[in-house]
């Protein structure tokens, strides 16, 4: 494999990593509060609110039911409005984030729902405000679950970013299509796949490790 191709793969990996990292950050930043709001406004939550919950839940479901390829094309005007163009890695971050936000929201909501109601009741009995309950009870207690969900999000984004690559975003997906497929270079195709597998694997290992560090609800894991 020539030096040029190696450089190309390196660049592609960097672009993919950039797209995944940026869109993950944006999706966490918006999805985390979204998930918290979904959880606390649900029936039985500490700030139950039917209208808010129903509206957000509907929005999340719509966002999650749109296939990524379609979503990406459908929001091109929005992408242009945000970054000024619809091509390139920065442009790809927009649909990637938009696709991941509802997913993160649901993942966070699910993690928070698994927290024992009794713990929340205990905090209420000690005079905690709803905000204190969110900050000191819900988030720390739900953290291992949230980390597990975020790991899943990052891995999904690796896949989505490859898809975005084929539509002009650059990155490994773009290389796989242009070189591996259109120029019949199976070695390049294989290389992109291997790099993607390694990326996913690294994310999973890091996520699992982080989740286990923050998890204290099992006897066999000391600290």
């Amino acid at each position: 494999m020539s030096q040029d191709l190696l450089n190309l793969l390196l660049e592609g990996s960097r672009d993919t990593a950039y797209m995944v990292a940026m869109s993950s950050l944006i999706a966490f930043a918006i999805g985390l509060p979204l998930g918290v709001v979904l959880s606390v406004t649900s029936p039985g939550g500490i700030l139950r609110n039917k209208p808010v919950n129903a509206v957000l839940s509907l929005a999340v479901n719509i966002g999650r039911s749109a296939p990524f390829v379609i979503l990406m094309i459908a929001i091109i005007p929005f992408t242009r409005w945000v970054v000024g163009t619809s091509i390139g890695i920065n442009a790809a971050v927009v649909p990637l984030s938009v696709a991941a936000i509802p997913f993160v929201g649901r993942v966070v909501e699910t993690s928070l729902r698994e927290i024992d109601q009794g713990i929340i009741e205990a905090a209420e009995s000690m005079g905690a405000t709803p905000f204190e309950i969110i900050r000191k009870v819900l988030l720390p207690e739900g953290l291992p679950g949230i980390i597990g969900g975020l790991t899943l999000t990052v891995i999904n984004l690796v896949g989505y970013s490859a898809m975005a690559g084929t539509l002009g975003a650059g990155g490994l997906g773009d290389i796989a299509v242009r070189y591996g497929y259109q120029r019949f270079m199976p070695k390049v195709m294989l290389a992109t796949v291997v790099i993607l597998v390694i990326m996913v694997q690294l994310c999973q290992i890091a996520g699992d490790k982080l989740a286990s560090i923050t998890r204290h609800d099992r006897k066999d894991l000391s600290d």
Binding site: G118, E121, A122, S125, M126, V137, P140, E141, L143, D217
Partner: peptide
């Protein structure tokens, strides 16, 4: 208040 199921924070 104390509870039957203790209701301690598991991550603290």
């Amino acid at each position: 208040m104390i509870f039957q199921s203790f209701n301690l924070l598991v991550n603290r």
